[in-house]
Design a binder for these strands. Sequence first.
DNA 1: AATGATAATGAAAAACATTTTCAATAAGGA
DNA 2: TCCTTATTGAAAATGTTTTTCATTATCATT
Lengths: 148, 148
Amino acid sequence: MIETERWLELLEEKGGRITGPRKAIVELMVKADHALSPVDVFDQARSKYPKMGLVTVYRTLEILSELGLVERVHQQDGCHMYLRAANGHEHLLICSRCGKAAYFSGDDLSVLIDRISSESGFVIQSHWLQLQGICQKCQPKKFQTPIE
Amino acid sequence: MIETERWLELLEEKGGRITGPRKAIVELMVKADHALSPVDVFDQARSKYPKMGLVTVYRTLEILSELGLVERVHQQDGCHMYLRAANGHEHLLICSRCGKAAYFSGDDLSVLIDRISSESGFVIQSHWLQLQGICQKCQPKKFQTPIE
DNA sequence: AATGATAATGAAAAACATTTTCAATAAGGA
DNA sequence: TCCTTATTGAAAATGTTTTTCATTATCATT
Ligand SMILES: [Mn+2]
Ligand SMILES: [Mn+2]
Ligand SMILES: [Zn+2]
Ligand SMILES: [Zn+2]
């Protein structure tokens, strides 16, 4: 995948070296469709790079997060999970059964934000929006909307 | 404050005993206008009840949270913080300088949610919305909107 | 291709955060 | 007041993240 190359190039531009452990972690994070904990990353990455240390996972997630390639996701259960970062202004939609994560965009909260701002006196800088639900695969048949 | 009484009554109805440590924690959580970490609660509660143990703080926050009186708040820094729970459908507005937290209501995301739901195939169950900004007290003079 | 400076790694230890265990204490019904 | 037992806090156990440090591997320079 070309996205992997892009991440590694950015890493390199920043002055970092491209190493086996880093490649394994990047490859995995680029294609992850679930938020992963450091231990999840560790377990998965070891199949590509068996010597992988958990410390390296922490360090690499930190770097990828500084580069804006990965971001922390909060969930009711684990809340130090990492996922490929949003492209521009996107928010997350997460399946509460299987954890599948998808970004969406096109929210317009400006009216709400203006109102809250003037009611509260706060200068609002950013917002955090996250939807929880059940993805198509996890829905029992009876709840599935027929495609028409 | 009568709200403190209400919390203690609910605790009692649930079969719990009213104790010194619990009173100290409830009093403090009822009036907190910042999300507090277990250690914050511990430190503050010790001034009312010096023998307080940190374990009791963890246990009491757990109980208050089961009773729906307190809820966990996620922030970029500490994300195991606790705050008085919302009344009905409210969301948080948090000052990124001093941590002051305020609830607001009246968000209507139904149009957005319907759209995302049909685009993604997810059945959406709930949403998290949180605004970050600078509260009035923390705003430099030049940014303050004059009251007219 | 070989060399060398040094960034990156992983094992181990340390630091933190949270949960469990357990004997002592205290709440509150009888 | 007495008795049952929920609650407490100290200490230990567990789990997570960070630090330390000697070794290894990357890659710019020969
Ligand atoms: Mn948005
Ligand atoms: Mn969180
Ligand atoms: Zn799912
Ligand atoms: Zn403030």
